[in-house]
């Protein structure tokens, strides 16, 4: 990229038009204009508007009233907010299980037996279908009267459990449903990564007597680093964006115990619980700040890589 803009103006005559002379400097801006405009209007400005809005009391219709940090003060003593925050943490940590699980399945499928391609695509299947359908499917899977889970528990003599009706396990039940497509995603990333692992290094390590777990940990996993990075990025984002599953499986219940920040914000700002836009914006700001830690890390990693090129 060091030779990107070769000055062609050197051999151009002064009579050429202004545009012609500055073509290379202007063209990128012309090409960027529509995309940047859309992105600013719909993504960048709204972030700042939300920050601003979180300082107001507003029902979405009437006049907004400036109340300073009052929304944030209210958050501190809001039990439901605390529950949501803890659930977000559970999501963040447990969702990361998708990464080792995906690696495990990828290793299992990284063979060349007949029909393996079809197996790979069928294993990837859960990622392609909408989270709404995944949520419905798992709601039935957990159903206390006929759900497959309880049918299977019955085989080993365990009593029926109502996963989605029990405040102490409901969040774990939803996370398990979310892990299903997420694992599939990580699997496909690792399958691609495994394809590119250097066979000579593996042979060399084999000659040195590396096998099984040691081979995996010291030879394979380091070479899978780019895949792991992407798996990490998409899994963190997926965990913090969890909304669809909660909405369809429990609607935040029972007694609001399965809410996360993204769901609680929606509930406060847009559902029958009242149109508290300012308070909702304050919740969104907190969620955004959590995400910002990760965004900063991702960008920093990408920046290092760009410089290394």
């Amino acid at each position: 990229m060091s030779n990107a803009a070769i000055p062609v103006t050197e051999y151009s005559t002064p009579q050429r038009g202004w545009y012609k002379r500055n073509e290379i400097a202007i063209t990128p801006w012309l090409f960027l204009a529509p995309g940047v405009f859309f992105f600013l209007v719909y993504v960048i400005f709204p972030i700042f508007q939300s920050f601003n809005l979180s300082l107001y009391r507003w029902d979405g219709l009437g006049q907004a009233e400036f109340i300073g940090m009052a929304n944030y003060q209210e958050l501190v003593s809001d039990r439901a907010f605390e529950v949501s925050l803890w659930n977000n943490l559970k999501w963040l940590i447990l969702y990361l299980l998708a990464i080792p699980a995906g690696l495990f399945i990828a290793l299992f499928l990284n063979q060349t037996v007949t029909g393996i391609r079809l197996y790979k695509s069928l294993f990837f299947f859960p990622f392609v279908i909408s989270q709404i359908v995944v949520g419905l499917v798992f709601t039935w899977f957990y159903d206390p009267t006929f759900g497959l889970l309880n049918v299977m528990l019955g085989w080993v003599g365990l009593g029926p459990i109502n996963v989605l009706g029990d405040p102490s396990i409901v969040t774990y039940g939803i996370i398990a449903a979310g892990l299903w497509p997420q694992t599939a995603y990580c699997m496909i990333l690792y399958l691609t990564g495994l394809n590119a692992v250097d066979p000579e290094q593996i042979e060399a390590a084999r000659l040195d007597g590396a096998r099984g777990w040691r081979m995996l940990w010291y030879v394979i996993v380091p070479q899978l680093k780019p895949a792991t990075f992407i798996a990490f990025v998409v899994t963190i984002i997926g965990a913090l964006r969890s909304f669809d599953l909660i909405s369809i499986m429990t609607n935040g219940g029972p007694f609001g115990t399965s809410r996360v920040l993204s769901f609680y914000m929606f509930e406060k700002a847009l559902s029958e619980y009242g149109f508290r836009m300012g308070y909702g914006a304050a919740i969104a700001v907190v969620l955004f700040l959590i995400m910002l830690i990760f965004i900063a890390y991702f960008l920093w990693s990408m920046f290092q890589e760009e410089r290394g090129r």
Binding site: V43, S50, L261, S262, F266, G280, A281, A284, F288, M291
Partner: peptide, 8 residues
């Protein structure tokens, strides 16, 4: 990467 809720 931004959470949807801050744009909502």
């Amino acid at each position: 990467f931004v959470p949807f809720q801050i744009l909502m």
